[in-house]
C-alpha cells in the first residue's frame, strides 16, 4: 500500500514563485538551525532516539483516520501533539524530519517548495500550538478539562494558521488570487482542524490515563521557551489580521507579486540584453515549439533505442556489478 493522505497543505513544486521559495527556504533553515542548537544544548543524547522514533510514529500516525461522511475522513497531522509532548524546538525537528522525508521520498510536497512547507507545517504548526497550549494551560491551571480544551485549541490553530500562511504564499506567487485562496484554504482547514483537535483530545486522554508524567514534564519550566510563546502568538496574530486584508485587496497582492517581483525584474533586465527577442532561428515561438517537439521526440527515440540495444546484450560492466 502506497500511502499518502491527500493533504491540501503540501504545496508541490510549480505553485510558488522561485523568489518566495528561496526566501522561505532561508527562513526555515535558520529556524531549524536554531532548533538544532537549542535541542543539542537543552536535552541529552537520550532524546535523539526519542525524536527519531516519534517522527516515525507521527509519519505513520497520519494514516490513522476516522470517517466523517460519505467517503471523506479526518486525519492526524501531529504538529500539536509533538509540541505538547516534546516542547517546541524538538517538535520542530520531528516535524521537519516528517515533512522533508514526505517530500523527498513520497513526493508529498515539492522540493523547491519544501522551504515553504517546512515553514508552514514544521515551524508555524508547532510554534502556534505550543504558544496557545502554554497560554491556555496557565489560564486553566489545575482543571483536568483545561488540558483538553488547550489541546483542542492548540491543534485546531496549528492547522488553521498554517493554512492561512499557505494561502498567502500562493497568492503572493500569483498562483491563486487571494480573495479565493484565503477563504477556500481557511474554510477547508477550519474543518480539518476540528478533526485534528478531536484526535488530539483523544490522544491526550489516552496519555493522561496511562502516563500522566509525560504531560507534566514541560509545565515546570515554562519560562525557558517564552520566546516561542511570544513568536507563536505573533505569527498567529499577523496571519489572522493579514489574511482578511489580503483577500479584500487581492489586486494589491497581485500587484506586489507581479509588478515588483524579483523574477519579473530579472526577466525585464534580460530582455534588454537580448533586444527584441531576436535570437536567430527561434524568433517565432510557434516555430520554436515545433522544433522543440521534434527534437524531444528524437531524443526519446534515441534513448529508447539505446536501451533496447543494451538489453539485447547485457554489458560486461553490468555483469561485473552483479
Amino acid at each position: 500500500m502506497l500511502f499518502s493522505p491527500i493533504n491540501p497543505m503540501h504545496i508541490p513544486d510549480g505553485f510558488l514563485s522561485v523568489l518566495l521559495s528561496i526566501v522561505l527556504w532561508v527562513i526555515s533553515v535558520v529556524l531549524i538551525g536554531i532548533a538544532l542548537r537549542k535541542t543539542g544544548q537543552t536535552i541529552g543524547e537520550r532524546q535523539v532516539p526519542l525524536m527519531g522514533v516519534l517522527a516515525a510514529a507521527i509519519f505513520a500516525g497520519q494514516m490513522l483516520n476516522f470517517s466523517v461522511t460519505g467517503g471523506t475522513s479526518g486525519h492526524l497531522l501531529g504538529a500539536a501533539i509533538a509540541a505538547i509532548l516534546l516542547g517546541p524546538w524538538p517538535a520542530v525537528l520531528v516535524m521537519t524530519s516528517v515533512v522533508a522525508v514526505q517530500a523527498l521520498l513520497f513526493q508529498d510536497g515539492g522540493i523547491l517548495a519544501l522551504g515553504a512547507n517546512l515553514f508552514n507545517m514544521a515551524i508555524i504548526g508547532p510554534f502556534v500550538a505550543y504558544a496557545l497550549f502554554t497560554l491556555l494551560m496557565k489560564l486553566f491551571k489545575k482543571q483536568t478539562w483545561g488540558l483538553f480544551v488547550a489541546g483542542f485549541v492548540a491543534a485546531w490553530s496549528s492547522i488553521f494558521i498554517a493554512s492561512l500562511a499557505c494561502a498567502l504564499q500562493l497568492a503572493l506567487s500569483g498562483t491563486s488570487p487571494a480573495n479565493i485562496a484565503v477563504p477556500a484554504m481557511g474554510a477547508i482547514h477550519a474543518l480539518i482542524g476540528i478533526g485534528e483537535g478531536l484526535i488530539t483530545i483523544g490522544a491526550l486522554a489516552f496519555i493522561f490515563a496511562a502516563r500522566k508524567d509525560l504531560l507534566k514534564a514541560d509545565a515546570n519550566k515554562p519560562a525557558r521557551n517564552i520566546g516561542v510563546v511570544v513568536g507563536g502568538l505573533l505569527i498567529s496574530l499577523v496571519l489572522v489580521v493579514l489574511s482578511p486584508l489580503a483577500s479584500s485587496h487581492p489586486d494589491g497582492l497581485e500587484w506586489v507579486a507581479e509588478k515588483h517581483g524579483f523574477i519579473e525584474a530579472a526577466r525585464e533586465a534580460f530582455y534588454n540584453i537580448v533586444p527584441d527577442y531576436s535570437m536567430p532561428g527561434i524568433s517565432n515561438p510557434a516555430l520554436a515549439t515545433i522544433v522543440a517537439g521534434i527534437l524531444g521526440a528524437v531524443i526519446v527515440f534515441g534513448v529508447a533505442y539505446g536501451i533496447a540495444r543494451a538489453e539485447k546484450r547485457p554489458s560486461a560492466q553490468d555483469d561485473a556489478q552483479r
Partner: peptide, 11 residues
Amino acid sequence: ARVTGGMAGSL
C-alpha cells in the same frame, strides 16, 4: 474522532 485519538495516543 476520540477513538482515533486514543489509537494515536497509544501509538
